[in-house]
């Protein structure tokens, strides 16, 4: 695979991949595998694990409980009492966040709760004053109000919540305030895709370039990358499929724009995750998406140009095998090269 000199046993690092490989080739059994992994990743932290788990699920349940409490819309509770209740809960959360400090998980969770409660406040506000405002206004206000906290939190979960609110706002705003025409409907995908992709770029930039002396490790979790990556990829892949399948979309600016952006995203993401920040998961997802696009493209072409009988099915079967084989060969080569470069998988 590579021309690197053979390493001796002392030079080969012991890691998860190595143990999994021994297990994969049936050289060790499950018991030995776990034993080895316990040695490598000491995990006698059941208590800590349970403690995190209880904190997160517990606070989530309480927050949902508070939302339900206000959703009941008690007619007996005076208006000002309702506001006082929400605001004092926000204040308590903030006070606790100060007290714990926002560098600890508990402090971050309090800040997150305060942010969610601002949304609850806005919902209650709409309920009491019957503002009947379009839902996008609620999400817009919510995202704007908590943005300062989000910025300071250094907490990935809160960022993801903020991005979810922003995505909802964009979708609802598009629907309720822009009134897109049939031709421009598809622009929403480009907007969402570019919005989410810019945060993906920001994450990778901050995490790998470390522009300031600040600690960016909190962005490092794989799930953060996964969510951002999918949130950018899916809306950008949809207009590409539309451009392939729907002939009525041909030529509209929205579809072309989405398809062009989608193509750029696929190419850039491939380049970045292959050469700049090697990452097998992201690469495989890009390649899978390309294969699905290929299926759609050839499918449309073959089934339109060759009528009837089984020939088109047969050709598609052959194309599928050829295309996926090609993709897998490429991925395996890349995988081998990454292994040689010692990229953790």
């Amino acid at each position: 695979m590579s021309d690197k000199p053979e390493l001796s046993l002392e030079q080969i690092p012991a890691n998860r991949a190595l143990v999994e490989e021994l297990y994969g080739h049936n050289l060790i059994n499950q018991e030995t595998r776990e034993y080895a992994l316990d040695l490598l990743y000491p995990r006698s932290k059941w208590g800590l694990w349970a403690s995190y788990f209880l904190s997160i699920i517990g606070s989530a349940l309480i927050l949902v409980g508070i939302i339900y409490f206000f959703a009941f819309n008690w007619s007996k509770v005076p208006i000002m009492a309702k506001f006082a209740l929400v605001e004092s809960t926000i204040l308590i959360c903030l006070a606790c966040a100060f007290w714990r400090g926002i560098d600890r998980l508990s402090g971050k969770l309090f800040l997150l709760s305060a942010s969610v409660l601002v949304g609850v406040f806005l919902a209650v506000f709409g309920q009491i004053y019957q503002t009947g405002a379009d839902a996008y206004q609620l999400f817009m206000g919510w995202a704007a109000l908590i943005f300062g906290w989000v910025l300071l939190s250094q907490f990935a979960a809160l960022w993801i919540i903020w991005l979810t609110i922003m995505n909802l706002f964009i979708c609802l705003y598009w629907d309720q305030a822009v009134f897109p025409s049939h031709q421009s409907e598809a622009f929403i995908f480009s907007i969402l895709g570019v919005f989410n992709a810019s945060f993906l770029v920001l994450r990778e930039f901050l995490l790998y370039k470390k522009p300031s002396s600040m600690n960016w490790d909190w962005l490092g979790a794989v799930w953060v990358q996964g969510i951002l990556f999918l949130a950018a990829l899916i809306p950008l892949a949809i207009p590409m499929h539309q451009a392939i399948w729907e002939s009525s979309y041909e030529g509209t600016l929205a579809a072309i724009c989405g398809a062009v952006l989608g193509t750029i995203f696929h190419v850039l993401a491939f380049w970045v995750y292959r050469f700049k920040i090697p990452n097998m998961g992201a690469l495989s997802t890009i390649i899978l998406s390309l294969c699905l696009l290929g299926e759609a493209f050839f499918g449309r072409f073959v089934f339109k140009s060759i009528d009837g009988d089984g020939l088109s099915f047969f050709i598609m079967g052959v194309i599928t095998i050829a295309m996926f084989t090609f993709a897998i060969v490429q991925l395996r080569r890349i995988h081998a090269q990454m292994e040689a470069e010692n990229v953790p998988s």
Binding site: N73, W74, G132
Partner: peptide, 9 residues
Amino acid sequence: VPHSFFFQE
């Protein structure tokens, strides 16, 4: 607006 009126469940 509004096109809705909220009340207790």
